[in-house]
Design a protein around this nucleic acid. Structure first.
Lengths: 155, 155
DNA sequence: GGCAAACCGTTCGGTGGCTAACGTTTGGGT
DNA sequence: ACCCAAACGTTAGCCACCGAACGGTTTGCC
């Protein structure tokens, strides 16, 4: 069974590239006085209103328990406030402060610059192709049949 | 207005996909009684001889300090032995034990299966295109001119 | 011969992520 | 009326990774 596919496994290439890009992005953000998770939280908050932390965590792509830590830090740094919703005391309402807003603007600048750097030398179809392929990979691992035997997705 | 970007930033798409794929790979490996870092270490050790831990760490894609932790655990689990090179007592020679070898074979099977799953629905040119685009992204963030600390020209 | 620089690996402290278990609050069921 | 389950967020404990500081070992160079 000819197994020698091209060099390192595909997933490894993906992981390595993502690691390098993520690292570079982190550097760019910290030069603007921020960090990757902080940026993601700010971005999600400004992008559209979220009703609770659970939703925010999902928008950021992390779990609720992890989000709590970041919100604690950001609140400590004066970027946002949390208060309980009087209508439903289970939920905590998150709102940016003025300095949170300022931090958002600073980081958005850095993020835009980075995005431009990342795209240099790529045509629009390249981007489109890349996004298509990434989605394909995501789908290939997304629905996950526990052990074996693919199941009908509709069920 | 004409913002040249479509949807979420490119880096975010990349990071999200890589996270999902990595997670799925981890699950596949742990079903075979392993973990991602353990697999990478075993794979690097079998792929070609390494002269010292520094080189091994670089092959795996992590730093020396991190590798130490994994080697400690793997040694504790009886997968490998470390002993000092008599010719140069600074370096620690890493060698797999029999059960380390067995673990390698088990995980290789799981990794191959996963790789097949990841590639399903992708033609050979798709793979080639993807690898080209990933390399491009990697290059776009790999150091730039100003900070010219003369890095490894390969990769 | 001896000392400083370079090299190799470990330890320490810190970040970011996860799961599991837990309190609080709310809304049913019975 | 009461109790129980679900929803929400926090806490506790784990893993992976990193940079910086540290001991031990050459090696280079007077």
């Amino acid at each position: 069974m000819p197994q020698p596919q091209g060099g390192p496994p595909l997933g490894l290439r993906l992981a390595n590239t993502a690691k390098a890009v993520s690292q570079a992005f982190d550097d760019a953000l910290s030069a603007a006085g921020g960090s990757r998770p902080t940026w993601l939280v700010l971005m999600s908050l400004k992008a559209r209103p979220v009703s609770n932390q659970r939703e925010l965590a999902s928008a950021v792509g992390i779990k609720g328990a992890t989000l709590t830590q970041h919100l604690n830090a950001m609140e400590r740094d004066g970027l946002l406030n949390r208060r309980r919703d009087p209508n439903n005391r289970r939920v905590h309402l998150v709102e940016l402060t003025g300095s949170g807003d300022a931090a958002f603007l600073r980081m958005r600048e850095a993020a835009a610059t980075f995005d431009r750097r990342l795209r240099t030398g790529l045509a629009d179809d390249d981007i489109a192709t890349l996004e298509r392929l990434l989605s394909h990979l995501h789908d290939n691992v997304a629905d996950h049949p526990e052990n074996h035997a693919r199941r009908d997705p509709r069920e």
